[in-house]
Simulated scan of single mutants.
Amino acid sequence: MSYIEIKNFTKTIKENTVLKNININLSKGKIYGFVGRNGSGKTMLFRAICGLIKATSGEIIIDGKTISKDIDFPDSCGVILETPGFWDNQTGLQCLKNIASIKSIVNEDIIRKWMMRFELDPNDKKIYKKYSLGMKQKLALVQALMESPNLIILDEPTNSLDEESIIILRDILEKEKERGATILIASHNKTDIEELCDKVFKIDFGKVKEV
């Protein structure tokens, strides 16, 4: 049984059809890659799966529940779509604790362990606005992964990461896959796609086809 079913999904914005009659099924415990030029519709599709945009026609069903009908957003989802809205004058740990307080799924000990997995020091007093781009990306990854969501959606997850950090991320995503998570990745990094993904889809002018 598919964990995500996208049926005849079309999205039109101001007479411009940005996603066109998309039909794909995605299973648990798999990593799916999405490739395509800038503006092809990758991020828009991810936003639709997250419940951030509504269909013009068609539907997206996640774990038996239809987005915008049964639920507004996926029940268990970790996401990187754009730069997360962290607090500039708080430490990385403080930022993550604030986010975790919304659902109260994880405690501070778990947050600290996730930070250390990405080689971020949870005791670092440096505030977020003084983080390097690589540190900001790592913190974004921690917020997406720390609650062990069933669905993980990552748009360009290796942006600003050094080679060692990319290796760490790939290892973590493999472990999340083994745990049973459904993972969606959009990336211009061919190595990410080739080494991680069980199946790859190409998006071009709003249409999706399996590679």
Rank of each mutant, 00 (worst) to 15 (best):
G29K: 03
F201N: 00
L169S: 08
C50E: 10
L19T: 01
L45Q: 02
T83K: 12
L45G: 01
F46T: 10
P157A: 02
P122H: 05
R112E: 09
F118V: 06
E163P: 00
D204H: 11
I167C: 06
L96P: 10
F205C: 12
N123C: 12
T158N: 09
F201I: 06
D198S: 02
L154N: 10
S40A: 15
A48I: 06
L196C: 01
Y131N: 08
R47W: 06
S132E: 01
K7F: 03
V18Y: 00
F73D: 11
K129E: 15
T12V: 12
N16T: 09
D198F: 02
K28H: 15
L93W: 04
I127Y: 04
L139W: 13
K20V: 02
K177N: 10
R117K: 15
D124Q: 05
G92L: 11
E210W: 03
I67L: 11
D155A: 03
C95H: 13
Q90E: 10
G29I: 03
W114L: 08
L96G: 14
V208D: 09
I183E: 07
Q94A: 12
Q143R: 12
K130P: 01
L120N: 08
L133Q: 14
D72H: 10
T91P: 10
I99N: 14
V79W: 01
I31A: 14
R37M: 13
G78T: 04
E119Q: 13
T10Y: 01
I6E: 03
A186V: 07
S2N: 10
L169F: 01
F205D: 13
S160V: 07
L141W: 08
T12H: 01
I153H: 11
Q90H: 14
K42E: 13
L151Y: 05
L139T: 13
S68K: 14
I4K: 09
R117H: 08
M1W: 04
K65N: 10
D121W: 09
E82S: 10
T43R: 11
N189P: 05
N21K: 04
T158R: 02
I13C: 05
K129D: 10
S101T: 07
K190Y: 00
K28Y: 05
G51C: 12
T12R: 08
F205L: 08
M115C: 11
K65C: 08
I185S: 05
L45C: 05
D124F: 03
K30F: 07
L145D: 04
N123W: 13
I166Y: 02
G51L: 09
T56W: 02
T66G: 07
F46S: 06
K30G: 15
I203F: 06
N150D: 15
L169W: 03
I6C: 03
I71D: 10
T191N: 07
M146E: 07
G29N: 13
N16E: 09
E5H: 13
K202E: 14
R170Y: 11
I168A: 03
K54H: 06
S27T: 15
F34S: 09
E15L: 00
E82T: 10
W114K: 00
L19C: 03
K199P: 00
R37H: 15
T182Q: 04
I168V: 13
P149K: 11
K42H: 09
V18C: 13
K202L: 11
L26R: 11
E178N: 07
F46D: 03
S148M: 11
L196I: 06
C95I: 08
A181D: 00
N159P: 04
G92N: 13
G78C: 08
Y3C: 00
E15A: 07
H188N: 09
I67F: 06
R112P: 11
L173M: 07
